[in-house]
Simulated assay, not measured.
Amino acid sequence: MRIVLPGGTGHIGTFLSSALVADGHEVVVVSRGAPRLPAGVRGVRWDGRTLGAWAAELDGCDAVINLAGRSVSCRYTDANLREMLSSRVATTRLVGTAIARAAQPPPVWLQMSTATIYAHTYGPPHDESGELGGAEPDAPAYWSYSVRIAREWEAAQSAADAPATRKVALRTAIVLSAVPGGAFTLLSRLARLGLGGPVAGGRQYVSWLHESDFVAAVRFLLARPDIAGPVNLAAPNPLPHRDFMRALRRAWHVPFGLPATRWMAELGAFALRSDTELLLKSRRVIPRRLPEAGFDFAHPDWPAAARELVARARVSR
């Protein structure tokens, strides 16, 4: 297969493109710069705003996996939130336009989305039919902006004039990878420093996904022409933050983790140029469509997944 990955230079795109090349696929990454790409991956430039020569790569390809969008690893200032929204919506519309104009449109378009689209909850988990988020009574107003980003992101794919192309929205939980540079690297650093205790009591749920299950789910969805629409990419067993961090500390053999209050989390997030929504919003998201279609998770439980990721991270240090 020839698979095109707009925005495929980020953390997820890097390990996904490597895995697809290892499967024997031809992989083309579309990006703004000229980054160093994994072996066997071909790069094509775009500006993320206008059609150009890059659009020819989609004509006749077998699949598009659009990962483009500004990273959420930043302070949620008004300017950054607007950039998150515009970068996701604009690139998705652009990919849709390229597909609509293709003489041979791709049979399938997997579009990155986010599990943040669901409501903040401590109650029953959300599958694909779960309640979408909105204004949360006990949350900062900008949390609803994150949901708006997710909704408009998916709407841009849905509105694309591409009747011959199957569209799948990947509502993805936090993806944890032993490849340096992602969320697992940051969380592990905190745990190893003894700072990986519960934040604001630790009741909030963490939805997560092991990198190998992300790759396996992409392979599965590429091969299943009967699946379209939103699909939750999340492990089947989310757990409270306090239990999540305890399992990570144990995997690193760290005996303690200092707890943090909400205001301490605000200070830490400011220092790390990140935002507390990533820590404090209770994301209790589970997959339904994948298991119903026969997908098996290799890493359904976090303690075992944490041990596997730590073991590989130790080797790469």
Rank of each mutant, 00 (worst) to 15 (best):
S17M: 07
S18V: 00
S18R: 14
A19Y: 03
L20V: 15
V21Q: 01
V21M: 03
V21E: 03
V21D: 03
V21S: 03
V21P: 01
A22V: 07
A22M: 06
A22D: 14
A22H: 07
A22G: 12
D23A: 14
D23M: 09
G24W: 12
G24S: 13
H25I: 08
H25R: 04
H25E: 14
E26Q: 15
E26H: 10
V27K: 03
V27M: 07
V28L: 14
V29P: 00
V30Q: 03
S31H: 14
S31I: 05
R32F: 00
G33I: 03
G33D: 12
G33K: 08
G33E: 03
G33R: 14
A34I: 02
P35L: 08
P35H: 05
R36L: 12
R36H: 08
R36C: 08
R36Q: 13
R36E: 14
L37R: 04
L37G: 04
P38W: 07
A39I: 09
A39P: 11
A39W: 02
A39D: 14
G40N: 06
G40F: 05
V41S: 05
V41M: 06
G43S: 13
G43Y: 04
R45H: 11
W46H: 06
W46G: 08
D47L: 09
D47W: 03
D47K: 05
G48S: 13
G48H: 09
R49I: 08
L51H: 07
L51I: 12
L51D: 13
G52F: 02
G52H: 06
A53Q: 10
A53I: 01
W54I: 08
W54T: 09
A55D: 09
A56P: 02
E57L: 00
E57A: 10
E57W: 00
L58D: 13
L58V: 13
L58F: 09
G60Q: 04
G60V: 05
C61T: 08
C61D: 09
C61W: 00
C61I: 02
A63F: 05
A63S: 11
A63Y: 05
V64F: 02
V64Q: 04
V64G: 05
I65Y: 08
I65T: 11
N66T: 00
N66Q: 01
N66V: 00
L67I: 06
L67T: 03
A68K: 01
A68V: 06
A68G: 07
G69V: 10
G69R: 01
G69E: 09
R70C: 02
R70I: 07
S71V: 09
S71P: 05
S71N: 13
S71D: 10
S71H: 02
V72K: 00
V72I: 15
S73L: 15
S73M: 14
C74V: 15
C74N: 12
C74A: 15
R75D: 08
R75L: 13
Y76W: 15
Y76S: 11
Y76D: 10
Y76A: 14
Y76Q: 06
T77W: 06
T77Y: 07
T77I: 10
T77N: 08
T77R: 11
T77K: 10
D78R: 15
D78P: 12
A79C: 03
N80T: 03
N80P: 00
L81C: 10
R82P: 00
R82Q: 10
